[in-house]
Nucleic acid binder design. Structure first.
Lengths: 208, 208
DNA sequence: TCCGCCTCTAAGCGCTTGCTCACCCTCGTT
DNA sequence: AACGAGGGTGAGCAAGCGCTTAGAGGCGGA
């Protein structure tokens, strides 16, 4: 991870890798706008306006509106995959690692739900080759989760009749958090993460 | 249920309640287009073209493009709520009724996933008062599922620490089927329904 | 001081959008 | 045969879209 992604305090700064600063401001503005209204309903004038710039400024940093979406989607999917892999590479039991994966994955989808919403639901707005690139990243996320479940089954920790189907369900459950999560709601990202980790352990039949 | 929704054979005909026939053709075309490309990316010319009509014909039957979306969303949510309530009103144990609800709800989201995708993911494109009407229907779906889980807990069938959170998770899991389900995929709607019913019973800690 | 480079703006081009309007065609009824 | 009603069309309007271009302004190095 590059130093630009972290503040001196150690907390990680989202979009820290996007430079120069004007390009980052435009990208952050685009994330907000896409999350609120969807890609197609968002105008380049709206994005530029939120970033405090003229419409033409956008095209200095990005070739097209679709390139903006692709950059957002790429960075977001990289981050999501990194989260899952970090949990999978931990040294606990399969149950501990699965719970950890779900907890941190869900927390990310709740905390950064505007980003996640764009990343997860605006995939169809990408052009064919950009979409193919992103789909490949998702395949790897799927493989990472399936790996943990496979290991749990092999170790006798889990009891799962349909590993592929259960993997899809687990990821689907986590991803959909970004759709319904509301900052003003009753639950914090941590609480949702804990709840979902528990639910997923039940789904795989992990003895408590 | 009105007779217009059923063919003489007894199988139910989707959109049977929409008349006259030209209005139904337009609505079916709109569902396809909205599901494929999203509401905002779909043009009125595209909808009319799919229905084999001129762009102006749309405005004989619908005041605006948004009214089309509202009609689709309203009918779809009515159907979804009807499915859940039918299962909830059954006479088995709470576990049987919950499994039945999930099975039929998921089957609908898989079988009619183009409709479901529009109904579940294009909500934000509705105007404020139309959206409020639909949100109220969703609240009732939530209450129906929560009711079954409450009864299961009261009867000692389930062991659920967080009923509200688990209800959200169950509905979220089912709804998201419409996003990833693929007709060319390996699983039939029935198979996904059965898998998900099993997973949900595990989530609520129903003894098998 | 002057230059070249980069960022950003004002203006606007070509096109598409949701929607309208004047008119036509096809009916069942008289 | 004449009529009224209602579903349908071709053409097109005003507005808004993604994107381009000519040029202004600021800044570091010679």
């Amino acid at each position: 991870m590059s130093a630009a992604e972290e503040t001196p305090g150690g907390e990680d700064m989202p979009w820290g890798e996007v430079t120069p600063e004007a390009a980052r401001r435009l990208l952050v503005a685009a994330v907000e706008a896409f999350a609120e209204r969807g890609y197609h309903a968002t105008t380049t004038r709206d994005i530029a306006g939120r970033a405090g710039m003229s419409p033409a400024a956008l095209y200095i940093h990005y070739k097209t509106k679709e390139e903006l979406l692709h950059r957002i989607s790429r960075i977001g999917h990289d981050k999501a995959l990194e989260i899952l892999r970090a949990a999978a590479a931990g040294d606990g039991t399969a149950a501990e690692r699965l719970a950890d994966a779900v907890r941190s994955f869900v927390r990310w989808h709740a905390e950064r739900h505007t980003t996640a919403r764009v990343v997860q639901y605006e995939l169809d707005a990408l052009g064919p080759e950009h979409r193919a690139e992103i789909v490949e990243l998702r395949r790897r996320s799927d493989a990472t989760v399936r790996g943990i479940i496979d290991e749990g089954v092999a170790a006798g920790e889990f009891e799962v009749p349909d590993v592929a189907g259960t993997t899809v369900a687990v990821l689907s459950l986590c991803i959909d958090v970004s759709r319904w999560f509301n900052v003003q709601g009753r639950r914090s990202p941590d609480e949702v993460g804990a709840l979902y980790a528990d639910l997923v352990l039940r789904m795989v039949g992990a003895q408590k």
